[in-house]
């Protein structure tokens, strides 16, 4: 995973890779709490992510809830078909702002 925060700290881009499992989701959650502070626009790039577990979905949901609470925006983009299917199966495409180019 790779974080890219803008200079004024309001725009954060997170690039995920490989798999978001229970283990990696735990690490991501820890980092995300710190990084999201003060962020107005949060983008998650999933072009290199092949799998999201339920634990990973939970972290994404928490991020979405946090952004809703702080009146920020969150976009999930470039999800590969396998990950998109997981979003559809779990109904997360209705909760997260999933944009596919």
């Amino acid at each position: 995973m790779l974080f890219d925060k803008s200079e004024n700290g309001e725009v954060l881009t997170l690039t995920l890779d490989k798999k978001l499992t229970a283990v990696t989701a735990g690490e991501l959650e820890k980092d995300l709490i710190e990084k999201l502070a003060g962020v107005k626009s949060f983008t998650v790039d999933m072009s290199r992510l092949v799998y999201v577990s339920s634990a990973g979905l939970r972290v994404l949901l928490n991020a979405q809830k946090y952004m809703n609470k702080t009146n920020g925006s969150m976009i999930v983009k470039n999800a590969v078909p396998e990950v998109m299917k997981i979003f559809e199966t779990t109904g997360f495409n209705e909760i997260l702002n999933v944009k596919n180019s």
């Binding site: 199966t89 109904g91 997360f92």
Partner: peptide, 9 residues
């Protein structure tokens, strides 16, 4: 038809 998971919102 699908809905989001329970306890999400």
């Amino acid at each position: 038809k699908h809905s989001p998971a329970v306890a999400t919102m």
